[in-house]
């Protein structure tokens, strides 16, 4: 305790000394490049340190959706189940869409094919629309509590991955317990964790990027709305690139520039097998591990890129969030 006013003068005059971070000083200096790199690599450590915060808020987010509802936790299952039934009946039974190359008894699998793609797409698009606003919406938390704000986009990503997990469960349940589609090869199931991992990384990177942009430019949310609509149609959800024939050929290169194309192809490869037309004319579904691996590989590169760009921009802007929201 130093009640004399002179103590204040002494403190002020010491300001000419450099304030170094090594001595515990928090200063206005922008985050150095080495620290940005360190944080990119050390994300798992941050997640581990704040695992209680992450699990509590993810659970809270999920609970908010279903709290007070009669069916509660059954709801996340009902939504994909209905989607599955609707696609199955409309495209398979009603419209009798066919994939002609498919083997006997599986020709009318168009509905399942679509469901599979839409399931993967919905996981990403839901995160983007919900996640773009996550920092702005949590303005009060960011202003009043000191906590690592990268946890907010992470929560959005995890919540959408969990709802995606429910849809995946419905699909696998449909394969195992109904005659609609044969269950995937057990070996292929081993790919699922890897696919979930890269999908989460890709989604997290994009949400980091978009939520940062939204803080500084509120038009981002509108742009995201337009872009996701276009994106949905250029992704082969309602059409099968292999079966479109000559009209798609000139654009094949552009189609493959879409990262979600590779994700959807990988999910279909794992869950449904590959549709091939051999020379002798009898179409079959085969398991093409090389195709699956290359799809995952290309998508993983995109995911890593999205994560690096998104997180670097986030780290560099993070210090100004509280002033802007």
């Amino acid at each position: 305790m130093n009640p004399e006013p002179e103590s204040a003068v002494a403190a002020a005059s010491s300001a000419s000394l450099p304030l170094r971070e090594e001595d515990g000083w928090v200063t206005a200096r922008p985050t150095p490049f080495t620290e940005v790199l360190a944080r990119l690599v050390m994300l798992p450590k941050l997640v581990l340190e704040h695992r209680d915060l992450i699990t509590t808020s993810v659970r809270r987010d999920l609970e908010i959706r279903f709290r007070g509802t009669l069916l509660g936790w059954i709801w996340p299952l009902i939504h994909p189940m209905f989607l599955f039934i609707v696609y199955y009946f409309i495209f398979t039974k009603l419209l009798n869409f066919k994939i002609p190359e498919l083997p006997e008894g599986q020709e009318s699998a168009m509905g399942i094919y679509m469901f599979c793609g839409i399931m993967a797409w919905a996981g990403i698009s839901e995160s983007l629309t919900r996640g773009t606003n996550v920092i702005v919406d949590s303005g009060n938390l960011i202003k009043k509590l000191a906590f690592p704000s990268e946890i907010l986009p992470l929560n959005v990503t995890l919540v959408s991955m969990i709802t995606f997990g429910f849809a995946l469960a419905v699909f696998l349940g449909g394969c195992y317990f109904t005659p609609i589609w044969p269950p995937p090869d057990p070996v292929l199931l081993l790919w699922i964790p890897a696919l979930l991992g890269v999908q989460a990384l890709f989604t997290y990177g994009l949400v980091l990027l978009l939520s940062t942009l939204q803080v500084f430019l509120r038009d981002t949310l509108q742009i995201v709305g337009v872009v996701t609509t276009v994106w949905m149609f250029v992704t082969p959800l309602f059409w099968v690139p292999e079966l479109m024939g000559e009209s798609v050929k000139p654009y094949q290169g552009m189609i493959e520039l879409n990262p979600v194309y590779h994700l959807v192809q990988a999910w279909r490869g794992v869950l449904m097998g590959e549709v091939t037309v051999p020379l002798d004319g009898v179409p079959t579904t085969v398991i093409d591990t090389t195709r699956i691996a290359s799809s995952i590989g290309i998508f993983a590169l995109w995911a890593l890129g999205a994560y690096i760009i998104g997180y670097v921009l986030f780290i560099l802007s993070q210090r100004r969030f509280a002033d802007e929201v």
């Binding site: 304030l19 000083w25 928090v26 206005a28 009043k144 509590l145």
Partner: peptide, 27 residues
Amino acid sequence: GTTAPTKGGYRIDGRVASLLELGAGFH
């Protein structure tokens, strides 16, 4: 620590609890 300084700096020895608003983050 909710917002960064623009000039100068500060350092704190020990654990900080801040009550900038009572019940911030209550759901």
